[in-house]
Amino acid sequence: MFAVLLLPGALRAFIPALIGRSALAMCGLALLFAVEQSTGSYTQAGFATAVFGIANVIAAPWRARGVDRFGQRIVLNAMATAQAVGYAALALLSGAEGVAAGWFLVLSAVVGLTTPPLGAAMRTIWASLTTTEGDRTKAFSVDAVCEELLFVGGPVVITAIIVATSPGTGLWVTAVAVTIGTVAMTSSASSGALRGTRGGAAREDRPLNQPGFARVLVVLLGVGGVLGVAEIAAPAVAAEHDAVTVAGWLLAAFAGGSALGGLVYGQMKFTSGLGPRLFALCLSMGFAAVLASQMDTLGLFAAGLAVVGLFVSPSLITGYLVADTIVPERSRTEGSTWINTSLNLGASLASAGAGIVIDRSGAWLALFLGGVIVLALAPAVPFARLREGLRGDPLSAG
Rank of each mutant, 00 (worst) to 15 (best):
S284M: 13
G286K: 08
Y320P: 04
T297M: 08
A288T: 09
G319Y: 01
L310N: 11
T245D: 15
A234K: 04
A238C: 03
E240M: 10
L291D: 00
T271H: 12
I326N: 03
E231T: 14
V308F: 07
T271V: 13
L305P: 01
L250A: 07
F279T: 05
T245I: 10
A253T: 02
G299L: 13
E329T: 15
L274R: 13
T325N: 11
S272R: 15
G275H: 04
G304Q: 09
L305I: 11
M268T: 10
F254R: 12
A288G: 11
G286V: 02
A239N: 12
Q294P: 02
V244P: 01
A239Y: 00
A243K: 03
V218M: 07
S258M: 05
P314S: 06
F301C: 03
T333I: 05
G286Q: 03
M268F: 14
V307C: 12
T271W: 01
V264S: 01
G248V: 05
A306M: 13
R332I: 11
T271D: 11
A288M: 00
D242E: 14
A289W: 10
V226Q: 03
G256V: 06
A303C: 14
A230E: 06
S313Y: 01
V244L: 15
A280H: 05
G222T: 03
A253Q: 06
F311H: 12
A255D: 06
L310A: 09
A289R: 09
D242A: 14
R332A: 13
S258W: 02
W249T: 13
T318R: 04
E231L: 15
A243E: 11
L291Q: 06
L274H: 08
A243C: 00
G224F: 04
A280F: 05
M295V: 05
L251W: 01
G224N: 10
A247P: 06
R332L: 12
R330W: 02
M295A: 14
L263S: 12
R332P: 00
L221E: 02
V264A: 14
T271S: 14
G304S: 08
L260S: 09
L274F: 12
F311P: 05
L263Q: 08
T318H: 02
I232T: 14
A292D: 04
A252D: 10
R330T: 15
L305Q: 09
A252Q: 09
A306H: 06
M268K: 13
G224C: 06
A238S: 15
G262D: 01
L274N: 06
A238Y: 05
V308I: 13
F287N: 04
Q267I: 08
D324H: 06
V218Q: 00
F301H: 00
A280P: 03
I317T: 14
V226S: 07
Y320C: 05
T325K: 14
P314F: 03
V237L: 11
G266H: 05
F279H: 14
A247F: 07
L274K: 09
A230F: 04
P314T: 05
V218N: 01
A302N: 07
R277S: 08
L227Y: 15
A289E: 08
T297Y: 07
